[in-house]
Structures are given as C-alpha cells and as structure tokens.
C-alpha cells in the first residue's frame, strides 16, 4: 500500500506577527515554526494505517523553503518512510490551486492508494488544497474526517458536521482524506526514532519541475484587524490584577454579590 501525506510548516500562532516589506504576507523573520496542527493528525493516521495493515510505504511531502525539512523530519520520526521536499522559497505567494497542482503533478503517476492532508492550514486557512488535489487527480475525497477505518480497499470514515454530528461514509481506495482535529492522538517521536529518521531518504525537487499553472488569485494587502470592542486590558503583578478583577466583577456583574 502506498500512502502520501502532505504537510505544511506554519508559524506558532502565539508568535508576534509583523507585516512584510511587500505588505502582502507576514514577515518570516523571528518566528518559531512547527508542523501545521491538522497535518499532525494526517501523519499519525498514515502511520497507524501502515501499522494496522502490517505493510505500506509512506511518503511525506512538503512544499516550502529549506526550513520545512524540520517539520518533515518530525514526520519521518513519527513513522513516515521517505520525504519529498518540493523546494520553493516563494511558497507564501502561492495560492491554494497552485499548491494543489504541485502536489497533483508529483502524485500523478505514483499510484498512491491513500492520500492524507490536513483540513486546513493554520496560517492561510483556505481549506482547499486537499479537495483540489483529489479533483485534479480524479480521486474521491472525504473531508473533515474524525474517524478512519480501512478494510481491504474499502474505507469507512466519519465526517464531522456542525453541532458534533457525524456523517458516516464509505469509499473505495484510491481516495483522499482531509483530517480534522481529534482524529487521533499524534505520537511524540522517540529519541531512537529521531535518530533513525536521520537516515531516511529525503529527496528535494525544485518547484519549477512540478508547477506549470498560473495563480488564480493574489493577495492585495495583509494587515492587522482594527481593534474593536474596546475591552479593558490589565497588565501587572498577579496579586494586583486579582484585586482589580474582583473589583470589576463586583461593579459590572452580579456574580460576586
């Protein structure tokens, strides 16, 4: 069984963001980077699938500058077998259709049985790339997956709907799945596995070899939202803050009377 997992490296969302010089994306300097949260579920599901099947070969793919190899190494240490780094220093200016086209161009002739992506990336958050890859490859795609079970070449998956209701669907592989939070519990790579991961194949392909479509949209501007609400911000020493808040709660609410 051949499995593909697509992962993106994103900044830690608690970072202090700055707008870049062009005014169209965030400045990449001084940020901490990690694997997109949704993609961790995708990697874990791929590894569990291989473990359950007792066989399989997992390729992890990421498009971006050299530093995305850090996230790929984590995926390899979690249990992926090989990495494909599509080298692109200008990844932040690529829109979802272009990203999907790159992935589809790579996957086109490889005969993957199962492809996992995240439901969305935490920074761009388009929630498009997975489904677009499926459409471009002519594969069925199942989105927002919170439960995955494969028997033979048939997958039963649960899709999460609003209010926590789930729709149960069946599909035959080859197929693509976009992973939602809570699908599984992503494992922490162990030290021996981190060492082993260093020896795994990590192939680099220049993006120009895979990209031959024009962007369908562009970013005109990136900016901070206007602060609305006018809520009070309290900073200082913990004891003082607690006194201040108790006072506010006494004045503004009835819960401390």
């Amino acid at each position: 069984m051949k499995i593909l997992v697509c992962i993106k490296q994103v900044p830690d969302m608690e970072s202090k963001f700055k707008v870049d010089a062009a005014g169209t994306w965030y400045d990449n300097a001084d940020l901490a980077w990690r694997m997109n949260e949704y993609d961790e579920y995708a990697v874990e599901q791929a590894v569990q699938l291989k473990e359950q099947a007792g066989e399989g070969d997992i390729t992890v793919l990421s498009i971006g500058p050299d530093k995305v190899k850090e996230a790929m190494k984590k995926a390899l240490a979690m249990g992926c077998d090989r990495g494909v780094h599509v080298s692109d220093d200008a990844v932040s200016s690529k829109e979802p259709y272009q990203i999907a086209s790159i992935i589809a161009a790579f996957a086109g002739d490889k005969g993957f049985d199962v492809i996992f992506t995240g439901l969305q990336s935490q920074d761009r958050g388009s929630g498009q790339v997975g489904v677009l890859v499926g459409e471009l490859l002519g594969l069925p795609s199942v989105t927002t997956v919170v439960d995955f079970n494969m028997e033979g070449d048939s997958v039963t998956a649960k899709r999460e709907l609003e209010g926590g209701i789930r729709a149960v669907v069946k599909v035959a592989t080859p197929a693509l799945f976009t992973c939602q939070l809570g699908l599984n519990t992503p494992r922490y790579p162990t030290l021996p596995n981190i060492m082993k991961a260093k020896k795994k194949e990590l192939l680099t392909i220049p993006v120009a070899d895979l990209l031959d479509v024009d962007p369908r949209q562009q970013t005109a501007a990136l900016f901070f939202p206007e602060k609305k609400g006018g809520g009070l911000v309290l900073e200082g020493e913990v004891g003082d803050l607690a006194d201040q808040l108790v006072q506010i709660l006494k004045e503004k609410t009835t819960v401390l009377s």
Partner: peptide, 24 residues
C-alpha cells in the same frame, strides 16, 4: 457558507469551473 458543507463542496465546484476560490 464556510461550513462543513461549504468547504467540502466549494473547492470541487471551483475546480470544475477553473474559478478562483476565496475562503472564509
């Protein structure tokens, strides 16, 4: 809507139409 229905269906329609999709 950017809902479980919208994010499942919208990219499929956009892809068929060769249209751009702007999410959320």
């Amino acid at each position: 809507l950017h809902s479980s229905y919208g994010w499942d269906l919208a990219p499929r329609v956009a892809c068929s139409l060769k249209a751009s999709q702007i999410s959320e």
